[in-house]
Simulated scan of single mutants.
Amino acid sequence: MTSDFEASRRPGGGSSSPCMADEVDPQYFDPMAVDPEQARDVARWRQSERKALRDARKTLTSHQRQTVATALMAALGNVLDRRAFEGSVRTVAFYWPIKDEPDLRPLMSDLIADGTRVALPVVETRAAPLVFRVWTPETRMERGHWNIPVPPEDAPAVHPDIVLAPLVGWDGEGFRLGYGGGYFDRTLADLSPRPFSIGIGLASARLSTIFPQPHDIPMDVILTEQGAVFEAKR
């Protein structure tokens, strides 16, 4: 990514996945982008930023990780409390923490105790929308794609009302930099009605832009240990 490219690029579109697709296919780019060469430039730039941000995240101490997770769970609880919900049971899709991501599992159990249904994303078919399966603290987890723990095949599949998306980076327009596979973008584009989406990550992971592409979908909220740092007006 050259300075000329950065100077000429104009933001306009979100990013990625709960998986490690960038490691499976480091040259990943979306063929639906307007300019294939530009899409490759963006993909290479994102790969570099992704590595730098993940390396920085690895430097956090155990105490710092716990402090961040505790602050995020408190902030997320406040956001969820503010969300009006119509229906018998609210379904919130979390994610299983990998690669030094903030661990929100204590909140998952607390929400279930309060009557919320919790689900986790599953890659049933590569390069396709995610499927969400119900999770409880008693769920017998199995290894899914990229060895990420997922609920078993016999766990009920559900349509979530709220989806949490882990992020590696984020920008002030609500776009997230994920792991590069595009799974959350495909999923949010596919689900109808579209769930309320919340990107979860570190305040220090803010970027001036992720250079959004046509397939990218912005989050409704970006949430960090500092609280809601972005909220869409809708």
Rank of each mutant, 00 (worst) to 15 (best):
H159S: 10
H159D: 04
P218Y: 05
R83F: 09
T61W: 09
K51Q: 13
T209M: 14
V122G: 05
Y28E: 03
F211Q: 14
W45V: 08
I217P: 00
V68N: 06
P11E: 15
D30T: 02
R133T: 06
D185G: 07
L53M: 13
P156M: 09
F5V: 08
S109N: 03
D100E: 15
P166F: 02
D41G: 05
I210Y: 10
T139Q: 10
G87F: 02
K99N: 06
Y28Q: 06
D55Y: 02
W96F: 11
G181I: 00
R10C: 09
D171T: 11
F230Q: 09
F132N: 07
H145G: 05
N78D: 10
K233H: 02
R206Q: 15
R133F: 11
D154M: 04
D35E: 07
Q27L: 13
R126N: 02
A74V: 04
K58Y: 07
T2C: 05
S48R: 12
T59D: 12
S192W: 11
V89E: 08
L120C: 12
P11M: 13
V122E: 04
R133V: 06
V34C: 02
S17A: 15
P36I: 09
D35S: 14
T209W: 03
T136N: 07
V79R: 15
P193V: 09
G180V: 03
E142M: 04
D103M: 11
P195E: 06
Q27V: 03
A113P: 06
D154I: 01
F132L: 07
L111Y: 00
Q226I: 02
S192G: 08
F132S: 07
D4P: 09
A119P: 00
R46C: 05
A74H: 14
V118H: 06
S204L: 04
